[in-house]
Every structure is written in C-alpha cells, then in structure tokens.
C-alpha cells in the first residue's frame, strides 16, 4: 500500500505501535482475527514479492504453535480425546490457536513495518531525539555496505593472486582473518579522510541542526488524530474488561456490552485504516484520470 508510505514517519510509527501493541497485549480471539486479517491485507498489498515461499515459513510457525500447545498443556475442562494417556482439551487447543494467531499477526505487522519504515525514516525519528545519534547512524549505514564491498573486492583480488588455497579449513580461516584485519586498517585509513572532509565542512564548530525531507502536513495530523482516537477507544474498552476472554478452565467471554462493541469496532477501524486510505487513493486517481 503506497498510501501509508507517503505519511510522515512519526505518524506511521505511531500507527504500527498502536496496532501491534493492542495485538500483543490482548488475548481476544476476535481482536486477534481482526489483527491478523489487517496485517495480512497490508503486507500482501504492499509487498512486491508475492511468492508463496516467503509465506510458507510463517504458516509452518503458525501450525507449530497452534499444535504444540494442546499437545503439551493439558489444562481445561473439555476433553476432546486422549492421546497416549494424555487428555487433549478444547481450551488448550483454542489457546494455542489464538496465541499462534497473535504471533503471526505481530510478525506480519513488523514485516510491513520494515518495508514502510525505511532507514531514512527511522533515522529521522532518532534524529529528533539527538542530532548526533542520527549522524552516527547515517554514517554507519554508509559504512556497512562500503565495508562489505571492500571485503568482497579484497577476497576476489586475493583469489586471483592465488595466495590462499581454499582446500583446507585452517588456511581458509587464516586467509579470512587476514582479509578482515586489512579491511579494518583500510576502514581506519578511510576514516581519516572522512574526518578531514567533515572538519573541512565545519563539523564541530558549534551546535548542529537537523535537516530532513519530511514535512508534517494536515493529512498527517488527521491520520494521527484518527489513529489515537481509535487506539484510545480500544484501550478503554480493554481496560474496562469488556473484551476479557479467558481459556482456562473453560472458555469464558465477557458479557456482550456496548463498550465491548465499541472496542471491536475501534480496533477493526484501526486495522483497516491503510486499506481505506488505499481505496480512497485509487478512487481519487481513477476520477482524476477520467477527468483529464
């Protein structure tokens, strides 16, 4: 979903914290189902990689968690069947399913998070905390790939020189150690020039300001406000116990109440916000295109 990506980093970060936070702390099957649905929807529409293989591992994880709990935990009153003299209960099966759903949902929220919150957005958020920290992170982000490519180049050169035989382990480890040690020297050498270049451009003459490309616009404010309101409503509803759900000893729902309904609706709204934005954007573009 391109729509969420275009928002201010702080807004996206708050959104992810809100939506994943609730999913992490509330063991309610309906809430978890909503969360999982939203997370999958966002990830699938956002990701360019639609291959099944990238989801297979997650599905396996889900099945593992869902199956392990009833096999190892025998709490609960309703016995479904007995396996090797151990009772398998309905309650523990439901608990496993809900917990596995929670883990899967949170994982998918974070997969989307890493796609949407790119390095420069995170850097911007850290920069708000400390301009120095953000500069260090930015330099780090530059140096890590530089270091890696240098190691690769040195390795290729040394291979072509035929100085290190790769057919025995000790030789190979020794070769790698030498490559690593010279790369550290190289990085230090490199650092001197970089330091000169920083100083030549006035680094350290006083307080630094922090520049970024992100602007906080009206629509960021609106999005943030909606996120916070929905999050607040959901929180209130959870805190009052209207969404309470317990598995053991028997499955127990909190009595249906208006507060509960508000909680479900608020979280449902929160989860669907990116999809709503996306649809809105699509309609807008369709309309614009037809009017051009």
């Amino acid at each position: 979903m391109k729509a969420l990506e275009a928002y201010h980093p702080a807004v996206s970060a708050v959104y992810f914290l809100a939506v994943a936070g609730i999913a992490m702390f509330c063991m309610n099957p309906i809430l978890q189902a909503l969360s999982l649905f939203g997370a999958l929807l966002l990830f699938l529409s956002n990701s360019r990689n639609r291959s099944v293989s990238s989801h297979a591992g997650f599905l396996l994880l889900f099945l593992l968690f869902a199956l392990l709990n009833p096999l190892f935990s025998h709490n609960g009153a309703t016995v479904l069947f007995v396996l090797n003299n151990n009772p398998v209960t309905l309650e523990s099966a439901v608990y496993g399913l809900v917990a596995a759903g929670m883990i899967l949902a949170v994982l998918y929220w974070f997969r989307s998070f890493t796609q949407i919150m790119t390095s420069d957005k995170l850097l911007y958020l850290f920069g708000k905390l400390s301009p120095k920290l953000s500069l260090i992170l930015s330099m780090g982000l530059r140096y890590v790939p530089l270091f890696q490519s240098q190691v690769k180049k040195i390795r290729a050169t040394q291979t072509a020189l035929g100085l290190y035989k790769e057919d025995n382990l000790i030789d190979r480890v020794r070769g790698e150690l030498r490559v690593f040690s010279i790369t550290v020297t190289w990085a230090l050498e490199n650092g001197i020039t970089t330091a000169d270049s920083m100083e030549a451009r006035g680094y350290g003459i006083g307080k630094r300001s922090h520049f970024s490309l992100f602007r906080f616009r009206l629509r960021d404010g609106i999005f943030l406000a909606i996120t916070l309101v929905l999050f607040g409503l959901a929180c209130v509803s959870i805190c009052t116990g209207a969404l309470e759900f317990t598995c053991y000893p028997t499955l127990q729902w909190a009595a249906a109440s208006p507060t509960g309904a508000v909680g479900y609706l608020a979280y449902g709204g929160l989860v669907l916000m990116p999809a709503v934005l996306e649809t809105e954007e699509r309609i807008k573009w369709k309309y614009l295109r037809s009017s051009i």
Partner: peptide, 14 residues
C-alpha cells in the same frame, strides 16, 4: 572517502 552520510540529500545538507 569524502562522503560522510548515506543519502545524497543528507550529504548536501551536512
């Protein structure tokens, strides 16, 4: 080696 930061715009602003 003269480049300090990871993005073009950030380098310009440095």
């Amino acid at each position: 080696q003269q480049i300090v930061t990871d993005k073009v715009w950030h380098e310009l602003a440095f």
